[in-house]
Design a protein around this nucleic acid. Sequence first.
DNA 1: TCCTACGATAGACAATGTCTAAGTCAAGTA
DNA 2: TACTTGACTTAGACATTGTCTATCGTAGGA
Lengths: 138, 138
Amino acid sequence: MSDLLERLRGRGWRMTAQRRVVAEVLDGEHVHLTADEVHARAVDKLPEISRATVYNTLGELVSLGEVLEVSTDRRAKRYDPNAHRPHQHLVCARCGAIRDVHPTGNPLSALPDSERFGFTISDVEVTYRGVCPNCAAA
Amino acid sequence: MSDLLERLRGRGWRMTAQRRVVAEVLDGEHVHLTADEVHARAVDKLPEISRATVYNTLGELVSLGEVLEVSTDRRAKRYDPNAHRPHQHLVCARCGAIRDVHPTGNPLSALPDSERFGFTISDVEVTYRGVCPNCAAA
DNA sequence: TCCTACGATAGACAATGTCTAAGTCAAGTA
DNA sequence: TACTTGACTTAGACATTGTCTATCGTAGGA
Ligand SMILES: [Mn+2]
Ligand SMILES: [Mn+2]
Ligand SMILES: [Zn+2]
Ligand SMILES: [Zn+2]
């Protein structure tokens, strides 16, 4: 993620303090923050950053393929900087914890032609739901 | 779906015109309506029915396991009366059309123990995305 | 027929996200 | 370095979807 800023500059991005801070917040493993969580952490580093800018920047990062949108529930979208290694998500139904997981095989191959109804399929999203060890213990 | 009302009466439901109308609207194949779409169709049959009642009734039907909630996009939830035959969804990225599909095998078996991180997994949701034949032709 | 608890209603409220108009500034140019 | 300009940021209005509350109505039993 640290070379992200370089890549963005190469794509003609004007480099601002706001964009730098949003990129910093999204750095790390298993990060799946909502826009408002990103905003809250960004404010710690740059108090005057606005909500609109966080939304705008996240949207641009998604368009550029640097960040993925994840919708594991009907609440806020989450933003996933792990855009380069394909994966699926495992979600705790009690506490909402999210883990990246890597199923075997290609989930697309489970859908036979007779079940494709002439669609040209380009993507599959899989969400596993259950109870995490923490919540099971409590 | 026509014996739904009988089942509900058996569960102690007070039978009202509003509940009957909501159940009627949800009858059919490949029905994936939003709450407001259900409301609009219900109003055709019972003009004074309120939005709150439609939301309440849909929520109850979901609790009873008679209807499933489907979230194929970040817009409104959709309500699926096909709750008795397990299936997944195939969604057109252009027009939003939704088809029920039946993948082969159990999607859970694609997730090895080493990728379960101690979770007790109870459910998997799979959404296939692509372009439907109509949109591809246009 | 009467009672009453359960259901229906209107509208306020909440959460999330989008849009607009006006002000600010990054970065290219001289 | 100073100037210029269009891209960027901002505050807040607005939109959509859904929930909650207080009040009214009625299904169904006594
Ligand atoms: Mn992830
Ligand atoms: Mn369905
Ligand atoms: Zn948990
Ligand atoms: Zn289509």
